[in-house]
Amino acid sequence: MSKKQKHATAYWKENIKYLAILLSIWFGVSYGAGILLKDELNEIKVGGFKLGFWFAQQGSIYVFVILIFVYVRLMNKLDKKYGFNE
């Protein structure tokens, strides 16, 4: 395997690692807070809505959007690290 291929393989391994971590966070928030911990979170009210309901309806979407920005930042750093930035 050439040096360029090893470089690209290392880049993609880090990229997949970041994706797995961020998607796990999103899954944990959407499934955990929206379904598994719904009853415990419903005891807390935010803006007149139960917190478990809010996470199921809105919270996981907000977390997903935040994770998109985190992913962009991580990928910009990764691109600079491996010399793929413009």
Score class of each variant (00 low, 15 high):
1 M>I: 15
2 S>H: 13
2 S>A: 12
2 S>M: 06
3 K>S: 09
5 Q>E: 15
5 Q>N: 15
6 K>V: 08
6 K>N: 14
7 H>F: 05
7 H>S: 14
8 A>V: 14
8 A>E: 15
8 A>K: 13
10 A>G: 09
10 A>Q: 12
10 A>T: 06
11 Y>H: 09
11 Y>Q: 01
11 Y>I: 01
11 Y>K: 10
12 W>A: 07
12 W>K: 15
13 K>Q: 12
13 K>W: 08
13 K>A: 01
14 E>F: 10
15 N>W: 09
15 N>M: 08
16 I>S: 04
16 I>N: 09
16 I>M: 05
17 K>A: 08
19 L>H: 05
19 L>K: 10
19 L>P: 01
20 A>L: 10
21 I>T: 12
22 L>C: 05
23 L>P: 00
23 L>R: 15
24 S>N: 13
26 W>K: 09
27 F>S: 09
29 V>H: 03
29 V>D: 05
29 V>G: 06
30 S>R: 14
30 S>K: 09
31 Y>A: 08
31 Y>R: 13
32 G>T: 12
32 G>D: 10
33 A>C: 09
33 A>T: 12
34 G>T: 05
35 I>S: 12
36 L>N: 13
36 L>Y: 11
36 L>V: 13
37 L>F: 08
37 L>K: 02
38 K>F: 01
38 K>D: 11
38 K>H: 11
38 K>R: 09
40 E>Q: 05
41 L>P: 03
41 L>W: 02
42 N>H: 03
43 E>A: 01
43 E>T: 10
44 I>F: 11
44 I>D: 11
45 K>D: 15
45 K>R: 13
46 V>N: 10
46 V>W: 12
47 G>M: 15
49 F>W: 03
49 F>P: 01
49 F>S: 04
50 K>T: 04
50 K>D: 09
50 K>I: 03
51 L>A: 11
51 L>K: 08
51 L>I: 10
52 G>Y: 07
52 G>Q: 03
53 F>E: 04
53 F>A: 08
55 F>W: 13
56 A>Y: 03
56 A>N: 06
56 A>M: 03
57 Q>H: 08
58 Q>C: 05
58 Q>L: 10
58 Q>Y: 10
58 Q>E: 00
58 Q>G: 00
58 Q>N: 06
59 G>F: 14
59 G>D: 08
59 G>H: 09
60 S>I: 07
61 I>C: 01
61 I>H: 05
61 I>P: 00
62 Y>A: 09
62 Y>W: 11
63 V>I: 14
63 V>D: 02
63 V>W: 07
64 F>A: 06
64 F>L: 04
65 V>R: 13
65 V>G: 06
65 V>A: 07
66 I>D: 06
66 I>F: 08
66 I>T: 02
67 L>P: 11
67 L>S: 05
68 I>H: 11
68 I>C: 14
68 I>Y: 12
70 V>E: 00
71 Y>K: 15
71 Y>Q: 14
72 V>P: 02
72 V>E: 06
72 V>Q: 09
74 L>I: 15
74 L>K: 14
74 L>P: 04
74 L>M: 15
75 M>P: 05
75 M>R: 15
75 M>E: 12
76 N>S: 12
77 K>H: 07
77 K>C: 10
78 L>K: 12
79 D>I: 02
79 D>T: 06
80 K>M: 11
82 Y>K: 02
82 Y>P: 02
83 G>D: 13
83 G>I: 02
83 G>A: 00
84 F>Q: 04
84 F>L: 10
84 F>W: 13
85 N>R: 03
86 E>I: 00
86 E>C: 03
